[in-house]
Amino acid sequence: MNELLWIFVSALLINNFVLSYFLGLCPFLGVSGRLDTAFRLGLATIFVMLITALCSWFLNTYVLIYAPYLRLISFIVVIASTVQFIEMVIKKLSPALFKALGIFLPLITTNCAILGLAIFATNRGYGLVEGLVFALGAGAGFTLALVLMAGIREEVELSDVPVLLRGTAMNLIIAGILSMAFMGFAGLFSST
C-alpha cells in the first residue's frame, strides 16, 4: 500500500511529467490559454493514460516476451487504435462525455507523455496495479501543471508585458519558475 502511495505522489509532484521530465510540452504550451479547456484536456489525458497503462501491461505480459524488438511499434499502434476505438464507443454511448473529451482524444494519442508513460512503466517493471496507479498520478500531475499554467496565463493576459516577451518565450520562463517551485517537493520523502 505504501509502495503504491509513493508511486502516485512521485508521479504527481516530485517527478511531474511536464515540469521535470519535459513530457507533453506541446499541449502544455499550446492548450494552456484558458482554464476550462486546460482542465478538460487534463481529464482526457488521465483517461488515455489509464488505457495506455492497461494496453502496455497486456502487451508486455502476453505478446512482447516473444518479440521484444517490436515494443515501440506495437505500443504506438495498439495505443492509437485503442483510443480511436474508445472514442467511437463514447460517441455512441454518451454524447455529453464525447463533447467534453472528444476533440482532444486523438490529439493526446500522439502526445509524448503517453508513450513516455508506457516506456517508463516498462523500464521500471511495474505490474498492472502499479502501472494504473502510476498512470493516475502522472495524468493528475499533467492536469495540475496545465491548470496552474492556464491560471497564470489568464492573469498575465491582462497585465502589461513587453512586446518582445509575449508568446512562447514568456510561457517558457513561467514554466521554468513553476518547475523550480515543484523542485521543492523533492524533499517530501526524505527517508526513501
Partner: peptide, 21 residues
C-alpha cells in the same frame, strides 16, 4: 536541472524575437 532548461530556452527565444524586431 529541469528549470534551467525552461529558462535557457525561454531566453534564447527572447533573443531570437529581439533580432527579428
Amino acid at each position: 536541472l529541469p528549470p534551467g532548461g525552461f529558462l535557457t530556452l525561454g531566453l534564447i527565444l527572447l533573443f531570437f524575437s529581439w533580432i527579428k524586431q
